[in-house]
């Protein structure tokens, strides 16, 4: 696997206000010896031979208008949409997930937490049923990954939720360590405890929790590694 990983070209888009870009760079270098290709948001083209792309966490454009709204119309986003339309793999983490919904690359919206507070804590993610590569690859009962957001309450209307569930697009749900989910294990009031979803083609993943921050046992959890590996496997 290591050789394939080394040959893989993965990019990371930096917006003004991105602040988890360094965490991603570190995690991919340390865990997989992959040097992420950095792309500034003002560029209009992605590096050639790119297989995968990361939209990192942070507060792009200071969350002005709505989280992710101004980033979604950054110059680079036209190229990101073209890349995604051609089946390219995209991983949006936290603010990156917000950018993906604002860009209509994933359905739904991320709203202010129901608790009205910024939440920074570990969450246990259960893998929902579905047939995407992520669903197949992520075989553990739960993944312990931190969340750090004020606007992470996933919202979609009931019709949209039915469609997501029917198409197997729900990937992660906030749960207890055993994988059971209920209102008690929902930190932010997200519809159906949703923490992460994939696109209909399974290649675009948006998630509020930070797998790149769960990449070392020393820092509390290395469960994010499996999630990042699954992303790398979707890169082709």
């Amino acid at each position: 696997m290591t050789n394939t990983l080394k040959a893989t070209q993965i990019g990371l888009v930096q917006f003004p206000g991105s602040n988890c870009d360094a965490d991603c760079i570190d995690a991919f270098k340390r865990l997989f010896q992959i040097d992420l290709k950095l792309v500034w948001h003002e560029e209009t083209a992605l590096p050639a031979q790119l297989g995968g792309l990361i939209l990192p966490g942070g507060f792009s454009y200071g969350d002005y208008l709505r989280s992710g709204a101004l980033a979604s119309i950054s110059p680079i986003m036209q190229a990101v949409k073209t890349f995604a339309a051609k089946g390219g793999s995209v991983l949006g983490i936290c603010n990156g997930f917000q950018v993906l919904t604002e860009s209509h690359l994933l359905p739904g919206a991320l709203l202010k937490n129901a608790s009205r507070t910024f939440i920074c804590e570990y969450a246990h993610l259960a893998v929902a049923s579905g047939d995407s590569l992520y669903h197949r690859k992520l075989s553990r009962k739960t993944y312990k990954v931190p969340i750090a957001h004020g606007e992470g309450r996933y919202y979609i209307d009931s019709e949209g939720l039915k469609k997501l569930e029917a198409q197997g697009q729900v990937l992660f749900q906030y749960a207890d360590p055993e994988g059971a989910h209920s209102a008690a294990t929902n930190p932010n009031g997200a519809v159906a405890n949703i923490a992460g979803i994939v696109s209909a083609n399974g290649r675009i993943l948006g998630m509020m929790p930070h797998p790149e921050r769960a990449s070392s046992e020393l820092l509390g959890s290395a469960d994010g590694r499996g999630i990042l590996e699954a992303f790398i496997e979707t890169v082709g």
Partner: peptide, 8 residues
Amino acid sequence: EHLANSVA
């Protein structure tokens, strides 16, 4: 297209 998000 921009000022409102029709989802919510």
